[in-house]
Amino acid sequence: MNNLHRALALSNMNAFDSNSSTVRTLALSRFISYVRNQGGETILDFGPVVGGNVDFFDQELSCKIIVEDLFSDLEAFKGAEAIESLCRHFSDRLRCENSSIDGILCWDLFDYLDKASADVLVKQLLRALRPGGSVFGMFDMKKSNKPFFTKHLILDIDHLDYRTYDASRCKRSPWSSRDVIRLFSEFKVDETYLLKRRVREMLFRKPWLA
């Protein structure tokens, strides 16, 4: 019976793979388990709100969810002074108190940020997270000239569905592994998964003695 169950589940996953907008995720389950072990009281989502994701985290973690759609913030900063103003914006954007968050979902936000504003944001993540808290991020390894943002919908612990929507920004040129590690130098890089669709999913944790 177990074998049959496994086979059916596998065929279901293959069916997922054949659908272009449904993708596998390897880091999400780890993120959830880290947050749960952490005591999981509050998570912060930088993506646009998705009702299904709220339900999912409520079921999985029974926690408070803070939605800070930073993608919509990005739309407000264009032009020559965008980098400087975005840095200023990020430096006081997060309303949460110090060390009050157990997990942060960044999705692919860093793909749209220049190094300076990414640095400022990472400092804010460090401030907001509890020691041991996790950050879930995705880094695209492909270049793209199309301006769009992506809404990630969690189908289950191993699968995401994504929908793109129009935006004024394109993804910047891909972050190299070295640059990402430097960017998160004050974090522990806990897991890195290189997926078939040429996306790196990464989990970072705030050290206990930060």
Binding site: G51, K64, I65, I66, E68
Partner: peptide, 17 residues
């Protein structure tokens, strides 16, 4: 209980407990 439709906009915290 919270229902958020696709296309809705929300910013803030959600406490369902």
């Amino acid at each position: 209980n919270l229902v958020i439709a696709d296309g809705a906009h929300f910013r803030g915290s959600i406490d369902m407990h």
